[in-house]
């Protein structure tokens, strides 16, 4: 079995574009799901009572349904329901955000609940309002405590972008499939893709761990 690297060299721009799309999709959906997750968690913890079962239903549903199903439904079925067409990238962004926000919400909720109640008491004793307590005392500590879990979630996000290949988003997985199909050299192409993904993913959790170790004391009350 010989390993012909020429196929990689010939198609590197095509594959590099895939890497770019992967990174952009990961960062954007990571950011939107974080923002949405934060809002959902706060709604669940501090919002109106009647909203809570709805939030719980949403979060548990996303634990039950595979990402593939969410992405496929968003791209093929949602346009039928809404009458709007959307690009594969947009569909992937929406689908990933909806799916990941549920996990982000759970991480935020766990983080907030892990802050010692004494911290809230101390802040209240100073005369702070509930909103001030959350904004200035509880959330900052909770965010630090959530870092490792968010690192995991970012790693999962990057891996989930590969599933977007199924709805023809031109990210790395899709680009690799195309090159492998055209060149009839799946071994080289897919092995190279594995290498690229590993190089992308390995530093993410390691990096988050390293950052966490330096700031952990800011969250320890």
């Amino acid at each position: 079995m010989d390993f012909d690297l020429a196929v990689i060299a010939d198609n590197w721009r095509f594959l590099a574009y895939g890497v770019l799309v992967t990174i952009v999709l990961s960062i954007v959906s990571g950011a939107t799901s974080l923002a949405a997750g934060l809002a959902i968690a706060l709604l669940r913890l501090r919002g109106p009572r009647w909203l809570r079962p709805i939030v719980v239903l949403y979060v548990d549903s996303m634990r039950a349904v595979p990402v593939l199903v969410v992405l496929v439904w968003t791209f093929f079925a949602l346009p039928i329901v809404t009458g709007l067409t959307m690009s594969p990238f947009t569909a992937a962004l929406i689908g990933l955000t909806v799916h990941l926000a549920a996990y982000a919400a759970e991480i935020v909720r766990a983080g907030i609940e892990s802050v010692r109640p004494g911290q809230t008491r101390a802040a209240v004793a100073l005369g702070m309002s509930p909103a001030q307590v959350m904004r200035r005392i509880v959330l900052p500590q909770a965010l630090v405590r959530m870092l490792p879990a968010f690192g995991s979630l970012l790693s999962i996000t990057i891996k989930d972008t590969a599933i977007a290949s199924v709805i023809a988003v031109p990210e790395l997985m899709r680009q690799s499939e195309t090159v492998a199909g055209q060149s009839f050299q799946p071994i080289e192409v897919f092995t190279f893709a594995m290498l690229l993904y590993f190089v992308l993913l390995f530093p993410v959790t390691r990096g988050v761990d390293a950052v966490y170790r330096r700031v952990a004391h800011l969250g320890r009350s």
Binding site: S155, A162, F190, A193
Partner: peptide, 15 residues
Amino acid sequence: RNLPLILVVYWAFYV
């Protein structure tokens, strides 16, 4: 732990 499963599936299938 640092590879997307879908890629492992493709890789296993072809390689």
